[in-house]
Amino acid sequence: MSEILPDHPQSRLHRLFDRNFLDYSAYVIREQAIPDIDDGLKPLTTLVRAGITALMQL
């Protein structure tokens, strides 16, 4: 297997990934995985419920 040199594009990609992974994972947890304090539902569940309610009113 070939060794990756420090100035190799793949090495830069790995550094970029390492820097941004923690920020991205924290964003996903905050915005998608934690239920809303108002209704106790996750964001996707809230969207589905709103869609079903809108369809029932047709």
Rank of each mutant, 00 (worst) to 15 (best):
D7M: 07
L55M: 14
H14Y: 10
I34Y: 05
D36M: 02
M56W: 11
D7C: 08
T46G: 05
S11T: 06
Y27L: 11
V28S: 15
D18S: 11
L55V: 12
L47G: 01
M56S: 08
L47F: 15
R30P: 00
S25F: 06
T46Y: 00
P6C: 03
L5Y: 08
D39L: 01
Q57M: 03
S25W: 04
I29D: 07
S2K: 07
L58T: 13
A54H: 11
H8E: 13
L47K: 15
M56Y: 09
G51H: 07
Q57K: 04
F17A: 05
T45W: 05
S25V: 05
D39H: 09
H8Y: 04
V48A: 02
D38W: 03
T46V: 06
H8N: 15
D23R: 13
D36C: 06
I34R: 05
L22W: 10
L5A: 12
L58V: 13
L44V: 12
L47Q: 14
L44W: 15
R15N: 06
I34H: 02
I52D: 07
S11R: 12
P43D: 01
P35V: 01
Q57E: 05
V28D: 08
M56H: 11
T45C: 03
L44M: 10
H8I: 04
F17T: 00
D36S: 12
R12A: 14
L44P: 00
G51T: 05
L47T: 09
S2P: 05
I34T: 13
F17P: 00
D36G: 02
D36Q: 15
T45A: 13
I37H: 10
R30Y: 06
L22E: 13
R12C: 13
P43M: 00
D36A: 11
N20S: 13
I29Y: 07
D39M: 05
A26M: 10
R12M: 15
A33R: 12
I29R: 14
F17L: 11
L22R: 15
R12P: 00
D23S: 11
F21G: 07
T53Y: 08
I34L: 04
L16V: 02
T46H: 01
V28W: 11
L5S: 08
D36K: 09
P9K: 01
I52A: 11
Q32R: 15
F21C: 12
V48H: 12
V48M: 10
K42E: 03
F21A: 06
D38Y: 03
Y24L: 12
G40Q: 02
S11A: 13
D39K: 00
R15T: 09
L5Q: 15
N20H: 14
D23L: 05
I4S: 04
Y27H: 13
A50V: 02
L16D: 01
L13Q: 09
T45G: 07
N20D: 15
Q57A: 06
H14N: 15
A33E: 08
M1S: 06
L13Y: 10
S25R: 13
A54I: 12
L44K: 11
R49A: 07
L22D: 14
Q10W: 09
P35C: 03
L5M: 08
F21W: 10
S11Q: 01
M56G: 04
D38V: 03
D36V: 01
V48I: 12
L41T: 12
D23E: 12
F17E: 00
L47V: 09
L55W: 02
Y24N: 03
S2G: 10
F21K: 07
T53L: 08
M1D: 01
R15H: 14
S2N: 09
R30I: 09
S2L: 04
L58A: 12
K42V: 04
P9V: 03
